[in-house]
């Protein structure tokens, strides 16, 4: 009887060990959009901005490319431009002395890690019946991609001689999304919806 109970208890503990988590499809249905700004800056003081159209920056550990081109970059930057224009700022080329610089870039991380487990047969790896056992290697891979947006004040430099960052946006995770293209383009609008501080 006690044996049966121990068996049932083991089953119960096994169930307890498996903490349920949300369904992945539901969890990754929408991208997370986060923004933050420097509250000492008056965004109405700026008039013009510049933005590298049709191009996104790229930081990745899987490619040496530093630029993301193509329709995705074009759609993202055009969406940013449409929102900046709607907020009353004027787009100019970078050689026209703009007040603000809009930077958009992707950060992509692909990681592979492995675990090695050794079968425990009396401390050795030799079985008279099966012969030698070899360690078992499990390989796991994770991937994450975020779209980072930054707004810098091109009239002010920090003590490190860098342009002052006055606003930033974060959209993620694109790697786990079922529709990263469309979802991240839509998320650009949300970035501006929750950043009412940006505007003339």
């Amino acid at each position: 009887m006690l044996r049966s109970f121990i068996l049932m208890s083991g089953l119960g503990l096994l169930l307890a060990g498996c903490q349920p988590v949300p369904d992945a499809e539901e969890l990754n249905k929408n991208l997370v959009v986060e923004t933050d700004y420097d509250d000492k800056v008056n965004f109405r003081d700026f008039t013009t901005y510049t933005l590298p159209l049709d191009t996104l920056g790229l930081i990745s550990n899987t490619t040496k490319d530093t630029l993301q081109l193509g329709s995705y970059a074009r759609d993202i930057t055009q969406k940013i431009k449409a929102n900046m224009d709607a907020r009353g700022y004027t787009y100019v080329n970078k050689n026209q002395n703009p007040d603000l610089g809009f930077v958009a870039f992707l950060v992509s991380d692909f990681s592979v890690y492995q675990t090695i487990s050794y079968p425990s047969y009396g401390g050795g790896y030799y079985s008279s019946y099966y012969g030698y056992y070899y360690p078992r290697v499990n390989t796991y891979a994770t991937s994450s991609t975020v779209l980072i947006l930054q707004l810098v004040d091109l009239n002010t430099k920090t003590s490190q001689n860098q342009f002052k960052l006055i606003w930033r946006g974060f959209i993620g995770d694109l790697s786990s999304s079922a529709d990263p293209y469309q979802k991240s383009v839509e998320a650009i609008d949300q970035v501006f919806v929750q950043s009412t501080i940006i505007g003339k």
């Binding site: 903490q19 349920p20 988590v21 949300p22 539901e26 969890l27 249905k29 929408n30 997370v32 959009v33 986060e34 923004t35 933050d36 700004y37 420097d38 509250d39 949300q190 919806v193 929750q194 950043s195």
Partner: peptide
């Protein structure tokens, strides 16, 4: 295990704003 799904909305904390749906466990 107790749960709750909070539909997508924006949470503001000072200068920071976060839009997401939450799965509370």
């Amino acid at each position: 295990t107790y749960t709750r799904h909070v539909p997508r909305q924006t949470y503001t904390n000072g200068t920071n704003a976060l839009t997401t749906d939450l799965f509370n466990y």
